[in-house]
Design a protein around this nucleic acid. Structure first.
Lengths: 114, 114
DNA sequence: ATGATACTTAGGCACATCCATAAGTATGTC
DNA sequence: GACATACTTATGGATGTGCCTAAGTATCAT
């Protein structure tokens, strides 16, 4: 069982994305960088709470930020989600590998009734 | 701010993958299905603890299982991670979109020193 | 029928996570 | 300099998560 080197980074990224608020921030930033107060505006959450989310995203390397004067601008870090993308590529069922070779896309079976 | 329909599912999948033990299980299952005791073997964890992880993976739709006799066989659900893959595709920086158009792959900038 | 095997259920404890309020600090405006 | 703005730090509380042990239940083997 070999453990690839990006495991700590992957862990941080997944933990960061495993929260709706933080994902919403990422989605917002996918459009363009934004300052903290703009990021906070859509949420019914105290500023310090959102700041905590931003810190988690930044520590995970998902996001970068720079402070100019009293304003902090946050942006999505290009390539930050590549680790996840890479890992995802490795977790494919034999059926999916087969489908890949045949150029077929497997239909999503409904995951509700489990 | 439109909220795509797969958000609950995405949330469940990301929460499920935000744990090293559960990711290790997924990695193991990417090779082939396995029975519970085989899955548990590599971990220094009591069986009920691992079972809990399996339940979380199953509720998230990442994994399916069938019981034959007293043995439960667990397998990766094909297409289960497609939601995540799809979401990831949407969270790209403008720079990455630009790179896509040019067929360039952006180098991973080191995420350590933040 | 007896015992072993393969989970499964139940209950509980320690720690992490998410959110809050209160009180800073640094910077820009008048 | 006084005041507002934009975070930032400190602290605490409610809830969730991950792990455990103990005690089931349902097969399978002899």
């Amino acid at each position: 069982m070999d453990v690839p080197k990006y495991h700590d980074e992957l862990d941080a990224v997944l933990r960061a994305l495993a929260d709706p608020t933080r994902r919403a921030v990422v989605e917002r930033l996918a459009t363009s960088p934004a300052v903290v107060s703009d990021l906070a505006a859509p949420f019914s959450m105290a500023l310090p709470s959102l700041m905590q989310h931003l810190r988690i995203l930044e520590n995970a390397g998902v996001v970068t930020s720079e402070k100019h004067g009293r304003v902090r601008t946050v942006s999505l870090r290009p390539g930050a989600l590549d680790v996840l993308h890479l890992w995802l590529g490795e977790q494919r069922t034999p059926a999916e590998h087969q489908a890949d070779r045949l150029g077929i896309h497997l239909a999503l079976t409904t995951p509700k009734e489990i």
